[in-house]
């Protein structure tokens, strides 16, 4: 559906030149929700603007729905853009127009009569569940409602692609969830291809099928959201995952020497990461029973990504020295990632 072929985008010239995007090639399939994640300044917003040529790439070609946008005339490009909806972090609604006026904006010149436009706008507003707000002005709406209006506006010309540029970054977590589930719903019911730009791993976790991780203008890693979460290869990906997981708190607790993590001689603290797609085996119980060790789970953080559980637990293992070692070995054999965070086996 979207083919980005060796896209580069530079700003400025000479010594002050900035390479915002460097030689990025991506292929996004019809009907998928594709995430592009990166820290601020990684070039993801510039990259998504290259999809509808709000930024014209310095090099490379963009093909959407079989048309090479980079080869179109200005007029043809405007036509093509009608089929690529876009929503923004700050909604970008027109303050002097009502909700109705905003959603009707892109329908001028579409060949629909006034009555048809009225009907279409109402249908769109119902679709995003704010059918009763047609006469309100943007100022009177909450952030979530504004983004719903923006989504309705982006869908007005029945696009095949929806670009979301940090669309939930200005919203609170609860509203973010609601907007994401709306986008997912639209993806499922309309079959619209969605590209999500975000710096929040939680967004990727919630709705993305595939993800590309960007750093300094390059795509450093891409793949299924699950495998990115389970086996991140690049340091930047790992640091992203860390931001969403509670399992990192243990390091703070150890650093603070919290009573929870004070060990008796012979004990050790481990972080167990489930990296397989189906940890259906009760590995912890099994280890405890088989080797006669005590596993005290301090906390666990397991989430469902793409329908499979992912995450891990932090536990204190205690018992006889050989048995503890054997239990750890067993866990490693079972493909559980084991990190020893604090070791009191040699304390005495």
């Amino acid at each position: 559906m979207i083919e980005l072929n060796h896209i580069s985008k530079d700003f400025g010239a000479g010594r002050r030149q900035v390479h915002a995007v460097r030689d990025v090639s991506l292929s996004i399939e019809k009907g998928e929700i594709f995430g592009i994640i990166g820290f601020s300044g990684a070039g993801k917003s510039t990259l998504v603007r290259c999809v509808n040529l709000l930024e014209r790439p310095t090099a490379g070609t963009v093909t959407v729905d079989g048309r090479e946008l980079t080869a179109l005339s200005a007029k043809e490009l405007r036509q093509a853009r009608r089929k690529i909806g876009m929503i923004f972090q700050h909604f970008n609604l027109m303050p002097s127009r009502t909700v109705f006026g905003n959603v009707a904006y892109p329908l001028r010149g579409s060949g629909l009569s006034k009555a048809e436009i009225r009907e279409k706008v109402q249908k769109l507003l119902d679709l995003v569940e704010i059918g009763d707000k047609a006469d309100a002005y943007p100022r009177q709406l909450s952030g979530g409602q504004k983004q719903r209006v923006a989504i309705a506006r982006a869908l007005a010309n029945d696009p095949s692609v929806l670009l979301c540029d940090e669309a939930t970054s200005a919203l609170d977590p609860q509203t973010t969830k609601a907007i994401l589930s709306l986008i997912k719903h639209l993806n499922e019911t309309l079959g619209i291809t969605v590209v999500v730009i975000t710096h929040e791993m939680a967004v990727v976790k919630e709705i993305c099928g595939r993800v590309a991780v960007m750093e300094q203008g390059r795509v450093v890693e891409q793949g299924e959201a699950f495998s990115i979460f389970a086996k991140p290869k690049e340091p930047v990906t790992r640091s992203f995952i860390r931001t969403t997981s509670n399992l990192q708190k243990i390091e703070e607790l150890i650093a603070q020497d919290s009573p929870i993590v004070r060990l008796k001689p012979g004990e050790l603290i481990v972080r167990l990461n489930y990296v397989e797609r189906s940890p259906s085996e009760p590995v912890i119980s099994e280890a405890s029973l088989r080797y006669g060790v005590v596993l005290n789970i301090i906390f666990a953080d397991i989430e469902i990504v793409q329908g499979a559980p992912i995450g891990g637990t932090v536990a204190i293992i205690g018992g006889e020295r050989e048995k503890v070692t054997a239990a750890v070995k067993y866990l490693i054999e079972k493909n559980v990632g084991v990190e020893v965070l604090k070791d009191a086996r040699d304390a005495d």
């Binding site: 876009m86 609604l93 506006r153």
Partner: peptide, 9 residues
Amino acid sequence: EAALSMGSS
């Protein structure tokens, strides 16, 4: 930017 993305001239 929003207007451009909607195909406005």
